[in-house]
Amino acid sequence: MTDDIHSLSGAYAVDALTDDERSAFEAHLEHCAACREEVDSLREAAAELTLLAGEEPPPALRADVLGLVSTVRPEPPRLDDRRARRRRTWIAAAAAAVVVALGVGVGVTRPWEGTSQGPEFTVAEQIARADDAQRISVSFDDGAVATVLRSQSLGRAVIETSDMAPPPEGRHYVLWLQDSDGTMHHAGAMPDEAGDTTMPLKGDAASAIGAGITVESDPRTPEPTSEPVALFSFA
């Protein structure tokens, strides 16, 4: 499935996908930096092909276009974009702090084994397509990446992990949603041998201000008993 969708990058770059395929691939792009980079580079290459198609437009077209534009105002930058940029900067700092915490925290060696993405993938796709989708990634020292996708309007969040090491023997990764007064709400325990995993967080992701992962001996603990190994701020 992953290989399959990755191979659509070329067709996507030159608009050779149907609308459905395009939507699916754009959802994939939300969390695949490799594909985003590849698409960008292939578009640069395809743009060079226009050198083979040069054709002087009718002179009247220039006057039409300039006349048209004089009646329309350019849109200002989207504020969402600027907020997103600031957020990414902030999260990068948070991630660096998390990496330090991990160094003295749990020893991490083995990646989880994979299982199916199942219906959860659909939730991830829905969130990725939402106008207010947020995507917050935390990188770990060993190359593992955990990403939380959240849409406030949908009230849903999912976590995606890649190459995440297993928790220490007899312990479990537990997910939390933090509400605005700081209370942590249990949002599910991750499967110990689930490998590269996508799973939805339980609870109300609309009012949450952040999510976190802790390592717990009791996967059903009503509150966290240790410092988080990863934090995802929705601010």
């Binding site: 070329g10 067709a11 030159v14 580079s41 060079e48």
Partner: peptide, 20 residues
């Protein structure tokens, strides 16, 4: 076809030396 498009664009990119 999608594989040919992608492989072809990758070759074009590499031959032109363009970068993302």
């Amino acid at each position: 076809a999608k594989t040919r498009i992608r492989d072809g664009l990758i070759r074009l990119r590499d031959a032109l030396g363009v970068e993302g």
